[in-house]
Write a protein that binds this DNA or RNA. Sequence first.
DNA 1: TTTGATGCAAATGTTTTGCATTGCA
DNA 2: TGCAATGCAAAACATTTGCATCAAA
Lengths: 144, 144
Amino acid sequence: MDMDKYAVLLKTKGLKVTSPRVTVLDIFNQSQARHLSAEDVYKKVLEHEGDIGLATVYRVLTQFAEVGILVATNFETGKTTFELNEGGHHDHLVCLSCGSVVEFHDPDVEARQEEIAKKHGFKLINHSMSLYGLCSKPQCRESA
Amino acid sequence: MDMDKYAVLLKTKGLKVTSPRVTVLDIFNQSQARHLSAEDVYKKVLEHEGDIGLATVYRVLTQFAEVGILVATNFETGKTTFELNEGGHHDHLVCLSCGSVVEFHDPDVEARQEEIAKKHGFKLINHSMSLYGLCSKPQCRESA
DNA sequence: TTTGATGCAAATGTTTTGCATTGCA
DNA sequence: TGCAATGCAAAACATTTGCATCAAA
């Protein structure tokens, strides 16, 4: 089991090793979908793992994002989604029909963003770029 | 007064010319800040212009965005902001300290986005790119 | 007049918070 | 043991909706 790995990670971040936190880590590591909302995580908790209150799910997700275990992103859905922070920054392509998410990283764009910020006298801290469209699945293309 | 201009615009979009709709148009045209949330608009209504229900403000803003009079954007604030659609697409630089918003348009980035979408088999419909940082004001730079 | 627009209040969906209890360290 | 973490329910927001009334065309 990965429980020890989780425990080490949590301690590294200065967080106590508790059952809800380990469970949430496990959910993200097991999940097919990389991007999960608080509600998604809560549903998985109810289905498979122990029982954690929804409020705790929110608290854990927020904390994990603060310490860099997760990264939070706001798509146009009205709910925040979280994904494991695996180091490399990336942006998202989102299918407006089926909701699938593709990640990409483009150094050209990143460099250009720095230039743009500089030109306007801004010190760039972070950014979010999401491209919305229709993925290649036939049923998504037809929905146009 | 611009009332006639507003009436023409509304009719062009197939919308009845009603007092709430004219008021909202006027608010965006008078406003110092280009980007207003529903709550911002509602406050201005209460302060200056007649009285419109908050629900109507939401309905009008949503409709205006649908017909292209306004453009809706979701920053990381949890609330949707609207701005007049003056044709040219643009993206935003947002100051995390004072909240000021600078608009920019970068053809290089736009072109690159198309390439990225194509490479992943997506048909691009729209996108949102927001750069977050600190603007050049001393008090914002110090907040780091 | 007829259909669409509005106001109000209630409902919704997401996220946060207060507080008593529990459980790591 | 002590302080942080949790659960639960209530609160806080942002936004939407039902429905009776009102007004533009």
